[in-house]
């Protein structure tokens, strides 16, 4: 056999997985992997920009993903640079060092979700608070739908956003009982929140510092019970000479 003919035979098939790796790296498909969470096993999808969605790992997750995002889904390891932060972010209920890709939502919704991500673990805020934080105090309903359509629940902790009347409200990731479960696990007892809502308690002030907070703010919760005083609104508290807490920024 001539050298030329021998050289022609030095190609085999393309190894498995190469074209999938290219699709993932180019962003033509999303990668996914499975993770444990307080609400059971979840699917996290990602691309080179960051984590793009989180959903319950049931039989239909792939169908829901394709319908919502219109992209292919391939099982893969997340990028090395930040893949190890995914479990950490689920555990903490905030992105932390993990990059999140919110290109699937509008800039307004992205701002709402990034604000939501700043709510500390164990604390809750109302939709109206988020609306005020993004400088759109009238847009409470739009904030509500942005939060309801959060593509990355748990990591962007939309379970920490409650109705403006103080009740716990709805939850997209498997229903409201999961929201209650997550809040209970984080130390924001949903039964206590319901009780406060029923009693009309929206704010809590500290008599000695004259500072008023959301009831779940860590400053309110570290106050001595005998120093606490309750209010039905920030306005009432301010009229009584209290100033808003700089940590929870009550509105």
């Amino acid at each position: 056999m001539s050298i030329e003919r021998a050289l022609e035979s030095l190609m085999g098939p393309l190894p498995d997985g190469v074209s999938e790796g290219i699709a993932l790296g180019a962003g033509l498909a999303e990668g996914y992997d499975l993770y444990e969470s307080p609400v059971g096993e979840v699917v996290v999808t990602f691309n080179p920009e960051g984590v793009s969605s989180l959903d319950l790992a049931d039989d239909d997750f792939a169908g829901r993903f394709v319908e919502r995002f219109g992209r292919r889904l391939l099982r893969a390891e997340p990028p090395r640079a930040w893949g190890r932060y995914i479990s950490e972010a689920i555990e903490a209920g905030t992105p932390g060092r993990l990059p999140v890709d919110l290109r699937s939502v509008t800039p307004f919704r992205e701002e709402v979700l990034r604000t939501t991500a700043t709510i500390p673990k164990g604390e809750v805020r109302a939709y109206s608070w988020v609306a005020a934080e993004v400088h759109r105090p009238q847009a409470v309903r739009a904030v509500g739908s942005a939060v309801a359509n959060n593509p990355i629940p748990l990591i962007i902790p939309c379970h920490r956003v409650v109705r403006s009347d103080g009740t716990v409200g709805k939850y997209s990731l498997g229903g409201p009982h999961n929201k209650r479960l997550l809040l209970a696990e984080e130390g924001a007892d949903p039964n206590w929140l319901d009780l406060l809502a029923a009693e009309g308690v929206r704010m809590m002030g500290n008599k000695t510092t004259k500072i008023v907070c959301h009831p779940t703010c860590r400053h309110a919760r570290s106050s001595k019970p005998e120093n606490l005083v309750v209010f039905d609104s920030l306005e009432t508290a301010e009229a009584a000479g209290y100033r808003p807490c700089s940590h929870c920024r009550p509105k």
Partner: peptide, 20 residues
């Protein structure tokens, strides 16, 4: 190394022709 490694890649066969 590249950004992604497919899970199935582990232990995957190398399709090298005999004389490679």
């Amino acid at each position: 190394r590249p950004t992604f490694v497919k899970l199935e890649e582990r232990g995957r066969e190398d399709p090298e022709p005999v004389d490679g």
